[in-house]
Amino acid sequence: MSARYVILSGCSGGGKSTLLAELRRRGYNAVDEPGRRVIKAEIDGGRRALPWVDLAAFARRAIEISIEDRNAAADLPGWVFFDRGLVDAASALEHATGESALERLGWLHRYNPTVFLTPPWPEIYVPDSERKHDFKAAISEYERLVQTYPALGYRVVVLPKMSVERRADLVLAELGTAFT
Rank of each mutant, 00 (worst) to 15 (best):
W121I: 13
K40N: 13
G85W: 03
A57I: 07
F58S: 08
V80P: 02
A49H: 04
A92I: 07
G85R: 03
S66A: 01
A96F: 06
T114H: 04
D54N: 15
G78K: 07
Y111T: 05
H109E: 12
I65L: 14
A90E: 07
I63P: 02
P51M: 02
L55E: 14
D88Y: 09
D54G: 10
W52N: 00
L102E: 00
A101G: 07
I63N: 05
T118K: 01
G106W: 05
P77G: 04
P122N: 07
G153H: 01
V53H: 11
D88P: 13
L105D: 08
S66L: 04
T148W: 08
P150M: 07
G46W: 01
P150S: 00
E123F: 14
P113I: 10
A57S: 15
V53Q: 10
L108A: 13
E103R: 09
T97M: 02
V126K: 15
F135W: 07
P77H: 04
S140C: 05
K40C: 08
W52D: 08
L105K: 00
F82G: 01
W121N: 00
L117W: 01
A90C: 14
W79P: 02
A41S: 11
P51H: 01
R37P: 09
P113E: 03
D54M: 09
G98H: 07
R70S: 06
R131G: 10
W121L: 11
A151P: 08
E130G: 05
P127C: 08
A56D: 10
A101Y: 12
R60S: 05
I43P: 01
W121S: 10
E103W: 09
A62K: 02
D75V: 11
K132N: 06
A89E: 14
A90T: 15
V38G: 01
E130H: 08
L108H: 12
D128N: 13
V115Q: 06
A137T: 11
A56P: 02
E103G: 10
A73L: 11
N71W: 14
A90N: 02
